[in-house]
Design a binder for these strands. Structure first.
Lengths: 115, 115
DNA sequence: TTAATACTAAAGTAATTGCCTAACTATTTT
DNA sequence: AAAATAGTTAGGCAATTACTTTAGTATTAA
């Protein structure tokens, strides 16, 4: 009943579904109406609407209705929070591996028990 | 009952949970035993084990048991599939926005209905 | 003005997820 | 050998998810 998921929960969660990734892939080429997104997916229109809701809630997609057509598009900065988090992690363990490498190199140059 | 989710389903799905991200954040600083991961999380040890299973299944974490201690660490290339997918999308719509910008600029330079 | 289009709302269902407790196995430590 | 430690297995339960069908509401086209 509590709907206070973090940005990252919603972002990664939204991207974890293949139907939603298909929608995002289509929208990365440019805006499209709901019905076109639906035409790419083997499911009912209401289901597509629900997926769209998840993507909007995650801040990945925006949409606007004009007349009876709702046009969807990728939001600017759609993935930035996810990219940030991943980059921070990668940086962290790459640095650690660097330090480990340096340490191992120093160990082989001047071993503790050298004569 | 079918467990044939794609790499990306499992990757993004694994990262969509805050407990699992906490584990990954810890492991990005270096290897740790299960019990240390558990000490960071407000849940039972069996639950931590399940999260660990999800992370391993997603290829994000590896682990090895020596004696009675299981040591976990980040897998090399942990995030690469996710990074690839995101970069491909971003590249796609950035290119599209570039073309759109070029088009709009050309339109304002030589308008159709100019004198 | 009727009919077709493009969504939207509501409610139901089966599977999955994220947690738990209780009981168990293997390895140290005392 | 007995006790403590570190993890594992099994089973259960409530919430969430990913769908469905049915029945609407606006808009636009004929």
């Amino acid at each position: 009943m509590l709907n206070q998921k973090s940005d990252l929960n919603r972002l990664f969660g939204a991207l974890s579904d293949p139907a939603r990734r298909t929608m995002v892939e289509r929208l990365s080429r440019g805006p499209a109406p709901v019905s076109e997104l639906a035409s790419l997916l083997p499911m009912s229109l209401p289901s597509v609407m629900q997926h769209l809701g998840v993507l909007e809630n995650a801040g990945i997609v925006r949409s606007e209705k004009v007349g009876r057509v709702r046009t969807c598009s990728i939001a600017p900065e759609a993935f930035s929070a996810a990219e940030h988090w991943i980059n921070a992690r990668r940086t962290q363990w790459e640095q650690r591996l660097d330090r480990l490498g340096t340490y191992l190199a120093s160990q082989s140059e001047e071993p503790d028990d050298a004569p």
